[in-house]
Nucleic acid binder design. Structure first.
Lengths: 214, 214
DNA sequence: GTCTATACGAGGATAGAC
DNA sequence: GTCTATCCTCGTATAGAC
């Protein structure tokens, strides 16, 4: 038994190995890219946060770009997964909309870096690093709901395309602004659990009241 | 007369001089910073757009940072001016809100780069390059309107602070997303005059319906 | 005021030992 | 797999002529 144990441990000294470091790099990268976007992010800063050598980034992901792509991939997959499993077509437009919003807000509340990551990608790189097919585009789900609702007359006569963007803005801007809004007098912690729940409630109420036919 | 004319023109050969170049630099910088933010922006790229030598940037503004500050200053002043001259306190909450939104949307429609500039400043630099006093903070105006409206019972029982953020998001997210949303199938030109007007109308309608006591 | 040429530092990426 | 040391490109900023 002592034999096998020694066998297993053998010459292996490293404190961390394999996927553990890879995950650590991904997490650190997510934070760095969320704040700075691709171009302004520094691999050195990512490595510093991880406490592993900078060269590990190039070992696991070939590039800074490779790492960026991995972060983007994972973020988008998270969002998509949250929405795809909802069976939205089976539900009435109002319920579908509410469920969609709740899932969306739940997802980004768990990962508040997500909106800024996507924002940077949109503005700085015009989406060149992540070509999403229209079928896996989250907005498409929302647009579909809005179209059904207006057709059925339960929603006002809104433009589904424009309103989809505006509704996303209502939900996500909070996270984008969270950075400097924290500089507010009262020093509210915008990302605390209580505030996140309040935000979700407020956003959903605002949107539902906004689209509903009165 | 020929005398004075010659006097004025004298040895001056340069095609462009003085404030003209300065303005050109500012305009180019605005575009560059809007897309990339401070850190990722390149003075070389700015100079290239301007067709004046890179060193002119350092002649007029000392730094890349000096240039950035100038852009920030002007952008924020634009926004503030649009809102300050509205006499919002004199109006009923609903009218005040509508006027506020219309002015805001009008301002950013004229200068669509503004939201992304402020966004980058917020996320990347956490507002360190532009400390705005709370008195000259645009959100404060909106919060005040919402507080009045809820107190008077003409608005729903919303949280003024959270709702102010969400409302700003409804108006501004459009411009932030404009970059990669243009990749949409139909290739809608989000910044065309017609689309901008439609956006303003849709956003205002959505918000008013969203906050109104029904 | 405007240009060209260049010094200098920061940061991405690689080599090679362990 | 993980580290240290190093290379090299790119971009900010300055010097100095016109």
């Amino acid at each position: 038994m002592a034999q096998t144990k020694t066998e297993k441990v053998k010459k292996t000294k490293p404190v961390r190995d394999a996927e553990a470091t890879q995950a650590a790099i991904l997490a650190a990268a997510e934070a760095e890219f969320a704040q700075h976007g691709f171009a302004a992010a520094k691999t050195e800063a990512i490595a510093a946060k991880t406490k592993v050598a900078k060269s590990m980034i190039y070992y696991y992901f070939q590039d800074k770009e490779g790492l960026y792509r991995a972060v983007l991939e994972r973020s988008h997959a998270d969002l998509l997964q949250a929405v795809q499993k909802l069976d939205l077509e089976q539900l009435s437009p109002e319920i579908a909309l509410e469920n969609f919003l709740r899932s969306l807000l739940d997802c980004v509340s768990r990962n508040p870096k997500l909106p800024t990551i996507m924002f940077h990608e949109a503005v700085q790189n015009q989406g060149k690093y992540y070509k999403k097919s229209s079928s896996e585009n989250i907005d498409a789900f929302l647009i579909a709901i809005l179209e059904r609702g207006t057709a059925a007359g339960v929603f006002r006569a809104i433009d589904p395309f424009q309103s989809a963007i505006n509704i996303m803005g209502t939900c996500l801007f909070y996270f984008i602004g969270a950075g400097n809004i924290q500089q507010f007098p009262q020093g509210k912690r915008l990302l605390s659990k209580a505030m996140l729940e309040k935000h979700a409630a407020e956003a959903i109420a605002l949107i539902l009241a906004g689209v509903r036919q009165s």
